[in-house]
């Protein structure tokens, strides 16, 4: 669904993406993992057209991601930080997003699952960080898009809510949707994903099936498999 070839991006003095080659398969859950500053968010922002790569190609369903914004109607985005205008209510935010999509029909199952109908009538500034993160998740899942782009989706959520969101992600995958997420929680990645992309210093070190990574490293646990991968990198 998404193909990147030789993607490079420089911010000021540092090069954040240094030739990223990867492909994200339709109908699967792909996790991008890697240390802070590895370029995960920059890559995600490139997919959304928020940041523009300096060189290389990035395509969405074969079409180059550029100035045409129509493809974003097929993407639901959950940013890392759930910061919204203070005096807006969750309901207003949902209405605005819906308006921007030409009144597309909305799927509000997640509102009911989180049980925050009442909270949506309050101004976002009075909500707790966790509740704001739920609003953030609802906004991404509102339009049943083909592709979900979730930047650390469960960060700040309590275990129950986190479980609800993960169940939702699995259900969307079962419905044939594609999910691209980042996470620092390896157990979560193991639980949710089919494919793993390991990114450090703006370069892809591993890209492929989760199971394959574990067998190749001779580990049964993703965390240790990645640790082994890092050690190998350091030795090489």
């Amino acid at each position: 669904m998404i193909e990147a070839r030789g993607l490079r991006k420089r911010f000021g003095a540092g090069e954040v993406l240094r030739g990223v080659d990867l492909s994200i398969a339709r109908g699967r859950v792909t996790a991008i993992v890697g240390p802070n500053g590895a370029g995960k968010t920059t890559f995600i922002k490139s997919v959304l057209g928020l940041a523009r790569p300096d060189s290389g190609t990035l395509t969405f369903d074969g079409a180059k991601i550029g100035d045409d914004h129509a493809y974003r109607a097929r993407i639901g985005y959950m940013p890392q930080l759930a910061r919204f205008p203070e005096h807006m209510t969750g309901a207003e935010l949902i209405h605005l997003l819906r308006n921007l999509r030409g009144g597309a029909s909305v799927n509000e199952e997640l509102v009911a699952e989180f049980g925050i109908e009442g909270e949506l009538r309050k101004q976002l500034r009075v909500l707790s960080g966790g509740t704001r993160q739920k609003v953030n998740a609802i906004a991404a899942f509102l339009f049943s898009p083909e592709l979900y782009v979730l930047d650390e989706p469960t960060a700040g959520l309590d275990p129950v809510s986190s479980g609800i969101l993960k169940a939702r992600i699995r259900r969307e995958r079962a419905n044939g949707r594609t999910v691209l997420l980042t996470s620092h929680i390896m157990s979560e990645v193991e639980e949710l994903t089919d494919d793993v992309i390991y990114l450090t210093d703006g370069v892809v070190r591993y890209s492929g099936a989760l199971d394959h990574l574990k067998t190749a490293m001779g580990e049964t646990n993703l965390e240790r498999a990645i640790a082994r991968l890092m050690l190998r990198e350091a030795a090489a």
């Binding site: 914004h69 129509a70 109607a73 209510t89 309901a91 308006n99 921007l100 030409g102 597309a104 009538r121």
Partner: peptide, 29 residues
């Protein structure tokens, strides 16, 4: 009507985002 989150799709015109007029988007935001 604006407070309620549940909105029936039928009430909205069947236009896609790409066809939303320039002024309409500006005014909505």
């Amino acid at each position: 009507g604006e407070m309620s989150v549940s909105v029936s799709a039928a009430s909205a015109p069947a236009s896609t985002a790409a066809h939303v007029r320039f002024s309409a988007v500006v005014l909505r935001v």
